[in-house]
Amino acid sequence: MIVITAPTGNIGRSLLPLLLDAGAPVRVVARDPARLPEAVRDRVEVVTGSHGDPATVDRAFAGARAVFWLVPPDASRTPEQAYLDFTRPAARAFTTHGVTHVVGVSALGRGTPLAARAGLVTTSLAVDDLIAATGVAYRALANPSFFENLLDDLDSIRDHGVLTDTAPADHPVPLVATADIATAAAHLLLTPTWTGVDTVPVPGPELLSPHDLAHQMTTTLGRPVRYHRDSLDDLRTTLLTHGLNPAFVDAMVEMKAAKSHGLDAGTTPSPSGTTFAQWCAEVLKPAVDAR
């Protein structure tokens, strides 16, 4: 039995059909099972609840061989509460129920000087350490920023032709489609011959600067898109006006600063995967047209 957490998120939605089409028995943990895609709803076991709840993970992990672990960011809490405290019940349940293999969603940067002060990335790496300490065979999928994060700027891109971030305009970095993370996770979950603890980079096939992103958006959407660089102080102010936890906001800003200073630099692109042009055509343009 393979247990999937966050099955209705971007990665989970792509991962589920890959496992089911391979004939794997799958159990999912979902707060709202009605949000599961209809195509898979009747093909999986469902445990209703939060995978940060001890009773829920006890039910979900009973008899499970492997778990796909993803912490859903909760900006109403501190990073330690949102990531580490959320994961502790699952870490205990891995041991209690004899789970042997865990695949988790993590971040690039381990072993670099910037990783110690990289905000949410630092906390994500601490989650990896927490899981690894349980004794399970563990693979941390180390990802850069997701293409899908750009959808947070969808209204600005559509209405004003402006993509906004805090990164240097001509600074090329890796980015990845969540579908490629799902593919990497499926491979590991379906072939559990690996042992020990390790990191598996999932960097995407290209290095792209914000100017590159805006140029490709312009080409795909058939309308001008330009890049605007916000300051970190502006970002902090904007996030705080939305009522987010101040410590979580600080960690987000610290992560952005670390990425701007090269946290993800030096990563070799993958020889395969979704290009940004493909993602723009298959995901961004339909989203823009649907608004």
Rank of each mutant, 00 (worst) to 15 (best):
2 I>R: 02
2 I>Q: 05
4 I>F: 00
7 P>S: 08
7 P>T: 12
10 N>D: 13
15 L>I: 13
18 L>G: 13
18 L>T: 09
21 D>W: 00
22 A>I: 12
24 A>P: 08
33 P>D: 06
34 A>E: 15
34 A>M: 12
40 V>Q: 04
41 R>D: 06
42 D>A: 15
44 V>I: 10
46 V>N: 02
47 V>F: 06
52 G>Q: 09
52 G>V: 06
54 P>R: 03
57 V>H: 01
58 D>H: 06
61 F>V: 04
67 V>K: 02
68 F>S: 00
74 D>P: 00
75 A>S: 06
77 R>W: 05
80 E>R: 12
81 Q>E: 14
82 A>W: 00
85 D>L: 13
87 T>E: 06
88 R>Q: 13
88 R>E: 11
88 R>P: 06
88 R>C: 00
90 A>H: 01
95 T>H: 03
96 T>S: 11
99 V>R: 10
101 H>Q: 05
102 V>T: 07
105 V>H: 00
105 V>R: 01
106 S>F: 13
107 A>F: 14
111 G>C: 13
112 T>I: 08
115 A>I: 14
117 R>T: 14
117 R>N: 14
118 A>C: 12
119 G>P: 02
121 V>Y: 00
123 T>I: 07
130 L>P: 04
134 T>V: 11
135 G>K: 12
136 V>E: 00
136 V>L: 06
137 A>I: 02
138 Y>F: 15
140 A>H: 05
143 N>H: 09
145 S>K: 02
147 F>V: 05
149 N>G: 05
158 R>C: 07
160 H>T: 05
161 G>A: 10
162 V>I: 12
169 A>L: 01
169 A>R: 02
169 A>W: 00
172 P>T: 12
175 L>H: 14
176 V>E: 00
177 A>Q: 13
180 D>K: 05
184 A>N: 01
186 A>Q: 09
187 H>W: 01
189 L>I: 13
191 T>V: 14
192 P>S: 10
195 T>L: 08
196 G>A: 09
197 V>E: 15
199 T>W: 13
203 P>D: 10
205 P>T: 14
206 E>T: 12
208 L>Q: 01
209 S>C: 07
210 P>L: 01
210 P>S: 10
212 D>Q: 03
212 D>T: 03
219 T>G: 10
226 R>Q: 14
226 R>I: 14
229 R>G: 08
230 D>H: 10
232 L>T: 15
233 D>C: 10
233 D>N: 05
238 T>M: 15
239 L>A: 12
244 L>M: 11
245 N>L: 07
250 D>R: 13
252 M>L: 15
253 V>W: 05
253 V>Y: 09
254 E>G: 03
256 K>W: 08
256 K>R: 08
257 A>G: 13
259 K>A: 09
262 G>C: 03
270 S>A: 13
272 S>H: 03
274 T>F: 07
275 T>F: 03
278 Q>K: 05
280 C>Y: 03
281 A>R: 09
290 A>G: 09
